[in-house]
């Protein structure tokens, strides 16, 4: 399955190659042009010569994880983190570098902890990865400085129509674009698969200067905080409630006109939808808003619980409804 393939691939910021290769392969025969820019963004165009309103759909290929920073004399691998809550790192299994060497993040046993240690979270610079090598030279045969470190988490379907995987943020966006571009659309549509969103929306800065679209749809996996013990007004999104439509976040205010358009299209086609009920976070939408002299952007997302962790989860129906919603919106507003 597409989402399984995409989430199994590793694409840490700056190492998006595996994900990009899968997307290219999936779209072969469904688009007219495929380009990779200097940053590594993958830009594909369907119906290149069609006239009228040109819509671009964007998602990012990168995922959060860790990066090898230093190897100690005793083979311990020190790392830095790209946006991971440090409290979930102890006892995590990870895959180091392109060879995907299995490693573990071990900590001091509970029996030997002082009361202070037991009640403090461990700083990232005190943690390390153990791959079973107790000499630096031994470790260096498998691990290089700067190697990416990905969560070791398998795609799993569970519960009521749910999926657990790493990197649902934003492989679910990538999968949506692929599904939309595979369908029969008469209009010119560009698909943008960005690099380096997680470290400061870097890839889209460049993509926004190249793709000359009239409107962008930015797709994300977003926070789903509909959890036990959290009040409804703090949920942000609800799993199974349909695609979440953004009104604002830290870097964008979305155009009301287009929010109303997409809601109308959802209602007309009986597609469930919800607002993304938070002003937190920031996405590639920022850069598309700034494209040329300013371009409208619609922000849509699939609710993901435990985002940025090895066990992010989503509801399959939210993904299916996002694909439907983007398809009908492009069919109705593209080309005009």
């Amino acid at each position: 399955m597409l989402l399984e393939r995409l989430t199994t691939a590793c694409g840490l910021p700056g190492f998006e190659d595996e994900v990009r290769d899968i997307i290219k392969e999936e779209l072969t025969g469904f688009v007219d042009s495929v380009k990779i820019d200097r940053m590594g963004n993958l830009i594909v165009v369907k119906n290149e010569n069609a006239t009228g309103k040109h819509i671009a759909i964007s998602a990012h290929m990168d995922e959060v994880g860790l990066c090898v920073r230093h190897i100690e004399g005793n083979g311990e691998i020190k790392f830095s983190s790209w946006g991971v809550d440090r409290r979930l790192l102890p006892s995590m299994r990870v895959l180091v570098g392109e060879k995907r060497t299995l490693g573990v993040i071990g900590t001091k046993p509970i029996h030997l902890q002082t009361a202070d240690e037991a009640n403090s979270s461990i700083a990232i610079n005190s943690l390390y990865i153990d791959i079973g090598c107790d000499k630096k030279e031994d470790c260096e045969k498998l691990v290089n400085l700067g190697d990416f470190v990905a969560f070791d988490s398998k795609y799993t379907e569970f519960g009521d129509n749910r999926i657990k995987a790493k990197a649902l943020d934003d492989r679910v966006g990538c999968a949506t674009i692929i599904e939309v571009l595979k369908s029969d659309i008469p209009h010119k549509v560009t698909g943008i698969f960005c690099v380096q969103e997680e470290i400061g929306v870097r890839g889209s800065m460049v993509a926004a200067n190249r793709v000359n679209a009239d409107l962008y749809i930015n797709l994300e996996g977003t926070i789903g905080a509909d959890l036990d013990g959290i009040k409804p007004h703090e949920h942000v999104t609800t799993q199974g409630g349909g695609p979440a439509i953004s009104v604002m976040d830290r870097s964008s205010l979305y155009f009301r006109k287009h929010i109303d358009e997409i809601i109308a299209v959802a209602e007309k086609n009986g597609i469930p939808w919800q607002y993304r009920r938070s002003g937190m976070g920031g996405t590639d939408a920022r850069n598309y808003h700034l494209a040329k002299t300013g371009t409208p952007v619609i922000g849509l997302a699939v609710p993901c619980r435990y985002i940025h962790s090895p066990v992010s989860t989503m509801h399959k129906s939210d993904f299916e409804n996002l694909v439907r919603l983007v398809r009908v919106y492009v069919a109705e507003f593209g080309g005009k």
Partner: peptide
Amino acid sequence: VIGIKPPHLTSNSDMEKPVKISDMAIDTG
């Protein structure tokens, strides 16, 4: 999965401490 609250509901002082087992829940979906 044993869930974790998202960053927007996590204060800097929350980050200093491990989550208590009584505050954790398993999400079965």
